[in-house]
Amino acid sequence: MPQISHNELINTVEKAFEAMGLRPGERAEAAEAIGWLERHGLDGIAELVKALDHMPAEAHGQLEERYRDGGLRVFSAGGQSILSAGGVAVDAVLSMARRHGLATVRIENCHNRALIAGFLTRSVYQKTGVLACWSNRHQSRLHLVWHSGLDRFPTLRVQERPRAATADQSLTLIASRALDLQPNLPPDSDTHRLIYAADPDTMQQAETQALTQGLTVSDEAWDRIKHIARGVLVDDGLD
């Protein structure tokens, strides 16, 4: 399996997104999000490969507003990946949190929601806490990503969730400058409910390892991303 650098990953993924028709700002931020996840041990490349199946029609799509009232906005992603709209969704909730004690953005009908963790780091610049949560219908799981807005890294938890029947394809973002949004997590001893956890220390270690040893990526995934990225090249016959 090839060793690649973080820079190499971001540049190649951004070109792949460009070839797929993502708009300039969106593709750069989406590539940064994938790189951030991979660099911190959160399987950004694996998530990207899953996302590729939901992206071909994304070039002209954008979030469609369904509801707006005070500190709440509801959008539909039209069945697309969160990759291209993740940046503006987080921007929207952080922006509202400037004016409202508690701001909520709900994005309905979107895919690849695990990628949202890669977009939350911008909350540090705003010094605003943000919580992302979504449920997975098939695996009966509740996913939580909490960023305090003060630390470099978020906390991630995946729990079993008994009420999975009500789960849908939505993603909820909650932000506040005033309230502590840290979710009520199960105690460490209650391991039957906690399926996955990643805390800032784990991510710091992953980052150090990525910088000193590079990133390891499967041949299959890397070849697929590079193949898509080659779509930006022009064969001008001038060689």
Partner: peptide, 14 residues
């Protein structure tokens, strides 16, 4: 700005 970018995401980079 966020309203503008929701309506016109093509200008996000600039």
């Amino acid at each position: 700005v966020v309203d503008f970018l929701l309506a016109a995401p093509a200008h996000r980079a600039v």
